[in-house]
Design a protein around this nucleic acid. Sequence first.
DNA 1: TTGTATGCGTTATCAG
DNA 2: CTGATAACGCATACAA
Lengths: 340, 340
Amino acid sequence: MNITIMDIARAANVAKSTVSKVLNDSPKISAETKTRVRQIMKDMNYTPSSMATRLAKQKTYNIGLLIDMSQEQAYLNPFFYNIMVGIESAIGPRNYDLTVVNIQTGDAQEERHYLKRLVMSKRIDGLITNNSILTPEDAEKLEQLAFPYVSMGEYAGTSVSWVDFDNETGGRMLTEHLLSQSYTKIAFIGGVQGERLFSKRYQGYAEQLRAAGLPLREDWEARGIADEKLGYLEVKRLLELNEPPDSLICMNNQVALGALKAAKEIGMQVPDGLGIATFDDEPYSAHISPPLTSLYINTFELGAHAGQMVTDRIEQPELRHQGLLLQPEIIVRESTTRRI
Amino acid sequence: MNITIMDIARAANVAKSTVSKVLNDSPKISAETKTRVRQIMKDMNYTPSSMATRLAKQKTYNIGLLIDMSQEQAYLNPFFYNIMVGIESAIGPRNYDLTVVNIQTGDAQEERHYLKRLVMSKRIDGLITNNSILTPEDAEKLEQLAFPYVSMGEYAGTSVSWVDFDNETGGRMLTEHLLSQSYTKIAFIGGVQGERLFSKRYQGYAEQLRAAGLPLREDWEARGIADEKLGYLEVKRLLELNEPPDSLICMNNQVALGALKAAKEIGMQVPDGLGIATFDDEPYSAHISPPLTSLYINTFELGAHAGQMVTDRIEQPELRHQGLLLQPEIIVRESTTRRI
DNA sequence: TTGTATGCGTTATCAG
DNA sequence: CTGATAACGCATACAA
């Protein structure tokens, strides 16, 4: 059998409640007994059972991170490791663990639903999700249960706590940068109408154009699922217009890669003939030829703030909901640095 | 208060033990009572408390994944997401959750040590680590505790279960491929003497050279921490030798990127003048110019096997330790496809 | 087939 | 300051 609190109590000649108090460093235990009991615990190589502690304290010290593993190329996947490290950096010091759970959006069988599996079964004290997973109904339910959770990704609607990057400002930054390099015919490539991420980014782009007194050209619109293929096909099309754009803002690196490929095939010089800037700086952005000007988001920070917010909400339930907007950072590289 | 098994028992007019048996689908409960009790559970929106279940069953249904977040560019980090999805795909269906825990190799304070924090405190039923984290002492201790664990990465020593890729065969495959493209002066770039990963890979390379009757040239040795800088500096040096190599095998993509940069600066044509092949295919390997021939390892599979193995060992403690060697796959791209 | 009693290992509430 | 004793919510051997 395993060694329990009772064994320690017997060995120390005290009640198990005393041992418990020593474990929790209760102020009403004398220093002597504390050191004595602790020594015995060490001698007997005792570690309290987290199962029992959790049941007694009605607290798991565990945070759940919800991800949809079926979404192959979801927005934040490439950054997942950093996000996780960020979360851990915030919750670890507060003694919380991180449990990563897969939610299959497909099979929504009642019984396997994460609300039941994780929240109602008390497997976790708090939840971190992202806005593409969290449905309004689930948010509503979490609210009813007064369960602490945070969304990574803006959740404008009701009273939901979230952290996100300022995508609108991001759109403005990229546009402004291109304008400063005296590009004036800027196209925006990728993204589906109605998609939150796209809307914000496009909005920033549109605003900045308007501020510069430039028109939004409909013939330069290139919408669609933001992948390499889209970038390739759309840029081929755009460059063959009578009046082609002189620069691009891409929804992500994949689109930019496709765009670059198209430009090369057509013989268009980047950046002199065509400037390319993109959202979502990835590890290899700097290694493309030419290196891509891109918008860096500090995903470690994103995770850290999310972790901070859940644990805050766990420990101070009276806290009001809040939204936190982090600022991106533009990294200027050759793909938009005109030499003329 | 929360609704418990007792509430259900009362509402159904049965003993709570009966409810418990219904929960566990015991064969000695009549079909009628089962359906009746289940209906009531649904009506009352009851979910058993995992805390209590765990304590009673002495089982957590939780697997721990140990990672060292301080190691910035560890071998498997870029592949972390895939590995995790692989693990989840294996353990999820068996009803295990995954808890990711950070281990700071730096502060080895007794109390925060994962053996105490996770294993001895019974926070998890099984452990997945990688061989760069798992020290022989810890392995020994886990063995003593008869605790189920699996190492990702070969652990040749004692009786440790592990999964890994066949790095030696990988070295042979890359070498063989270069030979088949009639490269004959193959250098091996990156890796530190004594490092397990390097040894295996280099060994495969050396064997294949020997099999082809080619010498191991000491002046082509380029050892060191496998990063871009090393690739750049070493290849600059190599290409200025009287008799430079005509092709390279790089320890990873970073090294290859550095090598490529050096080749470009010197004006050496890739692949005609210099063939470049590398270990560890990464998402962007195909997007480098020229696209890199590289050795792909299916990290999802790695994770899936690891997950499979731990759960197997949890459920069948009598199982013997085993090592599993997965085969890599070579992806031939332009960087080694000679046009002459 | 169902119910009773006890255990799982800790914490918390009281007395003393 | 310390010690009984009752939770915490479920599982299980044994009795009925």
